[in-house]
Design a binder for these strands. Structure first.
Lengths: 336, 336
DNA sequence: GTGAAAGCGCTAACAC
DNA sequence: GTGTTAGCGCTTTCAC
């Protein structure tokens, strides 16, 4: 069976409590004893039982991360980042893929909450009310990643910044009429990005043609073909897409229609997923900090754990910068 | 604080053990009591503490999944599948990304093992010996996914089948000289696939030009540009790549060199990652069952948990079929 | 500085 | 069919 604290105690000739103290950072033991205990623990290959420890301390040593769809490289990247940071802080992470189903997502929160110290939640689809009533499900700290909602610790990216850069870049290339293909209406990120585009359009820098919203996911083409055709018919010379997946979908259709990117149509994505740079042509896109955001979310979670928010106090909200990555899918209009 | 079994016991006027029995599937309680207890549990929002339960039963209710790199959509897909199946079986899953570092991978096994009932391990890079000595680290059951090694429960895909289909497909299109760009030498999958290609080459169906091995990962281009140039210089009219990521890398270089796919060069990938169908042109590729493999691995793990292998007995090994998915990156040689 | 005892939330024997 | 008791592995008072 497993090596327990009593085995180590026997092997080093002390009591279990002394072993516990010797192995705990703040423990008050003589240096000699500590060394002896450590040696014995090493020799026996002792691994403290987290579950038993958690029963006493109230800390599980686990974190939860919930994403809507791991097939989307954007979220895979986030999970990787959360896991890496958690490991650095001595925690393990539970993964939950909600399969873009709100019921499953609520279930996941319910199941995970009692087993973790806190949760990093990527939830573009839950309504503000549902999110607000999460307090009834658990009092474990929850950090929202890439979503902002009052009452939560949040880490988001400043998309307006990146979108402005993208539109300015297209303007500099001579584009004046630019299509925007939005994401699913139910998505907070989609609404946020659409608002960002609208804000820049207000400034009158370029003319924006709104091409509705597509629910285009990996493995589930949702109207992106039609959207591409509308873009082509709109007279726009460039298109900005809700995310890189949509951008790929558009480029795919453009290829079928014989429209060359970037010569006849410039395309800009959003997210900068890992494969964006490997497409042909490589995608110009607004880079959203994925690993950085994940790290910030975990760090925020730990800060909330260390100093719980006072009654009525808002947990911190952090906004990360975005920037445009210019690659090969955008070109000057003159080339046309 | 948390609702405990004692709260439920008080609320329903029975003892804690009766509550435990009432809530356990096989428990021997009167139907009336069971109902009363259930109602009270529901009303109080009781969630049994898995950690405390595990301390007694020896079952944690957790599984671990370890992958070398979550950024690779192949592994993201696998994690999604493992998590989905585990959820269906009432288990939660710990995720660990080993960052293609064998030291981290061994650490992850050490850390995870005591906290889970079993582990699904995707380890292309650990040596056979390292794998063999895992028994010293833990006696929790481990299932190898997409790797075969004696002494382990394994789920793999029959690549020879898919590779044969791919080469036959290219042959039917008139291709006779076909390049193969292999994966990293340290990878079990790369060696396995290379052997598969070599086996088919033996049959004399087509001539295979070996173009060495590239260590091309997402975010880490490893010689794929050079490999693409070698392919171009080799006189081959088609190329089979170690995986879809390498295939994308090749296509990217071909685009830069002005070589059109599939008109001037046919490209076949391997894995069929979710984005393969969204590339321009969509990639013809050997489809490896990712979600299916993940499900099979979890199922195998549970079978091993239910009936531990007798001394010296080999755990089951399962081989899944693969098949070619023909898309737009391959075309008849005549078109050239 | 160290040991003894209590107990975290739960289940498994064992009585009744 | 149900309650009582013991104890999983650990940390944390409280003595000494």
């Amino acid at each position: 069976m497993q090596v327990t604290i009593r085995d180590v105690a026997k092997a080093s000739g002390v009591s279990p409590s002394t072993v516990s103290r010797a192995l705990t950072p703040g423990g008050t033991v003589s240096p000699v004893t500590r060394e002896r205990v450590r040696a014995a623990a090493d020799r026996l290959g002792y691994q403290p039982n987290q579950a038993a420890r958690g029963l006493i301390t109230g800390r599980t040593g686990h974190l939860g991360v919930i994403v809507p769809d791991l097939l989307n490289p954007f979220f895979a990247d986030i999970c990787k980042g959360v896991q890496a940071r958690a490991r650095g802080l001595g925690h393990t992470v539970f993964l939950s893929d909600a399969e873009r189903d709100e019921g499953l997502e609520l279930d996941a929160i319910r199941t995970l909450a009692p087993q973790v110290d806190g949760i990093v939640l990527c939830s573009p689809h839950l309504s503000g009310e549902e999110l607000g009533s999460l307090g009834e499900l658990t009092d474990k700290p929850i950090v929202l990643l890439h979503r902002k909602e009052p009452g939560f610790g949040c880490v988001t990216a400043d998309l307006v910044e990146g979108i402005t850069d993208a539109l300015t870049h297209l303007h500099a290339l001579g584009h004046r009429r630019i299509a925007y293909v939005g994401g699913p209406r139910s998505s907070w990120a989609a609404r946020e990005r659409a608002a960002g585009v609208a804000a820049v359009a207000e400034s009158g820098l370029v003319e924006i043609v709104q091409v509705g919203s597509v629910a285009h996911h990996i493995g589930t083409p949702g109207g992106v073909t039609g959207a591409a055709d509308v873009v082509l018919a709109s007279g726009a010379s460039a298109v900005l897409a809700f995310d890189d997946i949509v951008a790929f979908g558009l480029m795919s259709r453009f290829a079928v229609r014989g429209v060359r990117v970037p010569d006849e149509m410039s395309v800009v994505g959003c997210d900068d997923i890992a494969l964006a740079g490997m497409a042909a042509p490589p995608l110009t896109t607004v880079s959203v900090p994925k690993a950085h955001g994940a790290r910030a979310a975990v760090d925020l979670l730990f800060r909330m754990l260390a100093t719980p928010a006072a009654e009525g106090e808002q947990p911190p909200q952090r906004v990360l910068p975005t920037h445009l990555v210019v690659r090969g899918s955008t070109a000057a209009l003159e080339r046309r």
